[in-house]
Amino acid sequence: MKVVRYSVDGSEQYGISGSDGNIQRLKGSPLEGLHPSGHVDALGSVRVLSPFHRPRVFGLGYNYHAHSQEVGKNTPTLPVLFMKPSTTVIGSDEAIVYPPDGENIHFEGELTVIIGKEARHVSEIDALNYVFGYTCGNDVSDRVLQRRESEYGCLLMGKGYDTFAPIGPVVETELDPSNLRILTRVNGELRQNGNTADLVYDVPALIAYLSKYMTLLPGDHIMTGTPAGVGPIRPGDTIEVEIEGIGVLRNPVVTSVTSAASVDAGRANNQAALPR
């Protein structure tokens, strides 16, 4: 099922997006169960939001063999983890704000895992039982700042600007994450064409590793790394991340928060990214 968070008539709701263009509204959070309320909303009358409000976001570096090769890195011997602030998260069709002092900002299309229940000391065999679903993500990165930080063994600000984690548009709850095609396009031009079969550490391994050291919480996001083909973005660009079985995450790039607000105001009826 494709679960979506959306705004309608001044309230935020969760629902199940159907192939008929309608959304079956849920009674509450999908993390508490997929219980229909009996109310139906037309997709064209709602504003689709990021799947969850300000979640914890874990990121992975160098987690595709081909990407490690393209940047001249050895295959990591343990998951290379960082975190993105919850304020980086935006939804599909919301604007990525290009930093005023940005010099080399890159897109990174990624499969994103949503944790469904509290997980601690989980085995790889049981790991997928703790997954609520999967969605598209874009780990937007400031390469200049990222490299300066990395010289001192840290990684935060280069990944942590507001709007640097587009997520969505829906969460697919019934999906095998082991062999999914990931495409990223900039202004319609294909830049990334990868597959999760190339992951260094697959989804069960990542959940087991993270839960060994900390408690994973319902709604946590794990951005699983990016395939080869990363590259720069500029204001005026439109970035699309497409993952089979999920849909298309689409975000324009703008120069300021004011520009982002203008884009946001005009996106309510633009729901082409949702599969039907």
Rank of each mutant, 00 (worst) to 15 (best):
R54N: 13
L111H: 01
V241P: 00
P51G: 10
S259T: 04
Q271A: 00
D220E: 10
E242V: 06
V80H: 03
T238P: 00
Y152T: 06
G236E: 07
E32Q: 14
D162F: 01
M214A: 13
R143T: 11
Q13V: 11
P51V: 06
L156I: 13
V241Y: 01
S7E: 12
V257A: 11
G153T: 02
F52K: 04
D139P: 04
V200S: 04
G158Y: 07
I222L: 14
P232T: 15
T196A: 05
G91W: 04
G160E: 11
G91T: 06
G158R: 06
I243Q: 02
T238I: 12
I125D: 15
V170G: 03
G188S: 10
V97G: 04
P55E: 05
H53S: 14
G168S: 15
E108M: 02
S123A: 08
K84H: 00
G91M: 02
T184S: 14
R25Q: 14
V46W: 03
I167G: 02
L156D: 03
S19P: 00
V248S: 04
L60V: 12
F164I: 03
I207A: 06
E149A: 02
L180T: 09
T163G: 08
I167N: 09
V57C: 13
L49P: 03
Y62M: 13
F107N: 01
G15P: 09
P232D: 14
D264H: 11
D264R: 13
A268G: 01
P79Q: 10
C136A: 06
Q271S: 06
E151N: 05
V200A: 05
E172M: 10
